[in-house]
Nucleic acid binder design. Structure first.
Length: 461
RNA sequence: UCCCCGAUAGCUCAGCGGUAGAGCGGUCGGCUGUUAACCGAUAGGUCGUAGGUUCGAAUCCUACUCGGGGAGCCA
């Protein structure tokens, strides 16, 4: 007999159907005459109740089941006379596949703190929260690909190991096969020629520059993969290894890009509501009781658009006092961004045209010579969820900006080449996948929205 | 990296100078078509680590480690 997933059983099977179901025990309640076993198989948030009568030869085994055991059950689907579930399985046979010693099994049939669950990352996928998390992540990843695929974007796989060490996005992890206990040296300096690639190499901080190469040939492309930052960041919204989505669009200026970003975020919100409502209701109940209404309103509302200069004016005019005063020329602080999106505007805000001195060298210089065509999308609770820009497509101006930033023309000659041979206006942004999952689920710590978080001093599992 | 807070039973926490506590979970027994079931009994702790103050430290002080909140860096 073929196994059915619990989700299938609840949606496609009818009373009196005979089914084979396999999963893990959440909890068990027994008496002399009957035992109830609640099992889950991860296909849905809902547990399935198995009823084992005392006359069943498997009753003794069922009565000793504990949380975490794995079982295989053949039985008949019936409408449940009890409260709390529509259907249940009247077991014919129940086989214990794997025991789970209750003295040492850390998961209990009660709520655990996210901090504790992080310490047992190999078992936390079995919890309601993490099962829901995995399904929402999966659904979001699917929505990301379909959004771009439907619009004719090509999915490009950019390298994870890179030799560019000055992409302006923070410190990088070095990749080496040199023996660190006995590094080959030449006059005191490390002999990088002896290293695997014959030169220093690093884990990528962004696929953007490589994506630009393909945008200059295929027009509309995107990347979606792991990204690494060796920053000593200890916050609830930073990881050393995270996933990032980076579309790069040729023949597109900043206003086109911000439209794309807005459509994209709206699509992610509505997709999750349409496909993971049960899991979202769980997050709404236990983590943030405004998350569903927020997603709803985002899917149906207009994002606010402000220039940096307008944002600074607005903040200055507000009666709010900030720890860091607002002034034109300094970057917006977290408190400013959050006040803008959470209090003043109360929905996502796209801030554009930042002073050039606080943004990366590749962003297109405006005619005022002072600002660049940068774009940050700010959302309540998280702050910056998307950072992007129109890229500088004029070679001379790009070279000037590289000089100002101390970036080697030699090392980026290929990047400059794109501006010499058929350059076109183009734009792109980066969306932090885990920050998006945080925003959507309402789970406050980024370590609890990724299966195996990597943070400073922590790389277990 | 900086500021603030925390670390006591498997988990969540109380105790804050004078003999280590509760709830949940575990174990044993009872009971019931049960729903984080219920009732009774029971086991379980070098009070994060290392120093110091004191007649006496879980409790006060110092350092370190780890965790949380905030900041910076950013996605």
């Amino acid at each position: 007999m073929q196994r059915s997933k619990i989700k299938e059983i609840l949606t496609q099977k009818k009373p009196d159907d005979e089914v084979l179901v396999q999963g893990w025990v959440k909890t068990r309640r027994s008496s002399k005459s009957v035992t109830f076993v609640q099992i889950t198989d991860g296909s849905t948030l809902q547990d399935l109740q198995i009823v084992v009568d005392e006359t069943n030869p498997g009753h003794d085994a069922a009565a000793t089941l504990t949380t975490g055991c794995s079982v295989s059950v053949q039985g008949v689907l019936v409408e449940s006379p009890g409260q709390g579930q529509k259907f249940e399985i009247q077991a014919n046979t129940l086989t214990v596949l794997g025991e789970s010693d209750p003295d040492s099994y850390p998961l209990q049939k009660k709520r655990h703190s996210p901090e504790f669950l992080r310490e047992i990352a190999h078992l936390r996928p079995r919890t309601n929260t993490f099962g829901a998390m995995a399904r929402v992540r999966n659904s979001l990843a699917y929505a990301i690909h379909t959004f771009f695929q439907e619009r004719g974007f090509q999915f490009i796989q950019t390298p994870i190991i890179t030799a560019s060490d000055a992409e302006g996005a923070g410190s990088m992890f070095q990749v080496t096969t040199l023996n660190l206990n006995d590094v080959p040296k030449d006059n005191g300096a490390v002999k990088h020629e002896d290293d695997f690639f014959g030169r220093p190499t690093f884990l990528t901080v962004s696929g953007q520059l490589e994506a630009e190469i393909f945008a200059m040939a295929l027009s509309d492309v995107y990347t979606f993969g792991p990204t690494f930052r060796a920053e000593n960041s200890n916050t609830s919204r930073h990881l050393a290894e995270f996933w990032m989505v980076e579309p790069e669009v040729a023949f597109c200026q900043l206003d086109g890009l911000s439209e794309l970003a807005e459509d994209f975020l709206k699509r992610l919100c509505s997709h999750v509501l349409a496909n993971c409502l049960e899991d979202m209701e769980f997050f709404n109940k236990w983590y943030d009781n405004s998350t569903i209404s927020t997603l709803d309103s985002i899917a149906n509302s207009q994002f606010e658009r402000l220039t940096y200069t307008e944002a600074v004016d607005l903040l200055k005019k507000s009666s709010q006092t900030f720890e860091y005063p607002v002034d034109w020329g300094i970057d917006l602080q977290s408190e400013h961004e959050r006040y803008l999106t959470e209090t003043m505007i109360q929905r996502p805000v796209i801030v554009t045209d930042y002073p050039k001195d606080i943004k990366a060298f590749y962003m297109r210089l405006n005619d005022d010579g002072e600002t660049v065509r940068a774009m940050d999308v700010l959302v309540p609770r998280i702050g910056e969820i998307i950072g992007g820009s129109q890229r500088e497509e004029r070679r001379e101006i790009l070279e000037g900006r590289m000089n100002e930033s101390g970036i080697s023309h030699d090392e980026y000659s290929w990047y400059l080449d794109l501006r010499s041979y058929g350059t076109v206006p183009h734009s792109g942004f980066g969306l932090g996948f885990e920050r998006t999952v945080q925003f959507i689920t309402g789970v406050s710590n980024i370590r609890d929205v990724i299966p195996f978080p990597r943070t400073p001093k922590s790389a277990e599992f």
